[in-house]
Amino acid sequence: MTISRRQVLRIGGGLLAGLAWLRLPLAAEAVEIRMQGNADGSQVWFNPIGLRIEPGQTIRWINLDPGNSHTATAYHPKNFERPLRIPEGAEPWNSDYLLPNESFSVTLKDEGVYDFFCVPHEHAGMVGRIIVGQPDRSPAADPSGQAAGGEPIPEIALRAFPSVAEIMRHGIVRPA
């Protein structure tokens, strides 16, 4: 039996596609968000700033900023009386202060939009957004302004959030 070049290429392409599929992140695999800053400390950010994951995936924040401590804190009334900007019924989190090279993880199970911030750097616009699954398509699913209740969010932080549409379109949004 003779195999044609076309058949060899088809088999090879199938094998490569199979290997690529095996490298896709599994639901149990943690996705990393880096806490970063420039050398003089004048700018700080999360990287990525926007991310889409599947329900049950774990997010791991790691502080890679050698000059600052940071937090990963959900917008929730239980966290410093902040407005609710995670799905109702979802468990809020607060990493507490992470020193350089320390990390914190949380597993997000409820579908929806989760907004978070860094306690000492919210006023510098250090915020992020995670979308879990397929969020509700209502206007409330893309919080862009002040949420009812709690301390107001600084305007610079509100402007820093990537839109739900941008995250859904790209899957990941890096800081500008």
Rank of each mutant, 00 (worst) to 15 (best):
M1W: 01
T2K: 15
S4C: 02
Q7K: 10
R10A: 15
L15K: 00
L16K: 01
A17M: 13
A17K: 05
W21G: 15
L22R: 14
P25H: 11
P25M: 14
L26M: 06
E32T: 15
R34T: 08
R34S: 13
G37D: 04
G37R: 02
N38C: 05
N38W: 02
G41S: 02
V44T: 08
W45N: 02
I49T: 15
G50D: 04
G50M: 04
L51D: 12
L51A: 14
L51N: 14
L51H: 11
L51W: 12
R52T: 10
I53Q: 11
I59E: 04
R60W: 01
W61Q: 00
I62M: 11
D65L: 05
N68R: 15
N68V: 05
H70M: 12
T71F: 04
T71C: 08
T73I: 07
A74T: 09
H76P: 09
H76M: 10
P77S: 10
N79W: 10
P83A: 05
P87R: 10
E88M: 08
E91L: 11
P92T: 02
W93A: 02
W93R: 01
L98Q: 03
L98K: 02
P100L: 12
N101A: 12
E102V: 03
S103N: 11
S105T: 13
T107A: 13
L108H: 06
K109Q: 14
K109C: 10
E111F: 00
G112D: 11
G112V: 09
D115W: 00
D115N: 14
F116L: 09
F116A: 13
F117T: 10
P120S: 06
H121E: 12
E122G: 05
V127M: 10
R129M: 05
I131T: 00
P139Y: 04
P139D: 06
P139S: 05
A140P: 00
A141V: 06
D142L: 02
S144E: 13
G145C: 08
G149Y: 07
P154W: 10
P154G: 08
E155H: 09
E155V: 11
I156F: 00
A157H: 04
A160E: 10
S163F: 07
E166I: 06
E166H: 11
I172F: 01
R174E: 09
R174M: 10
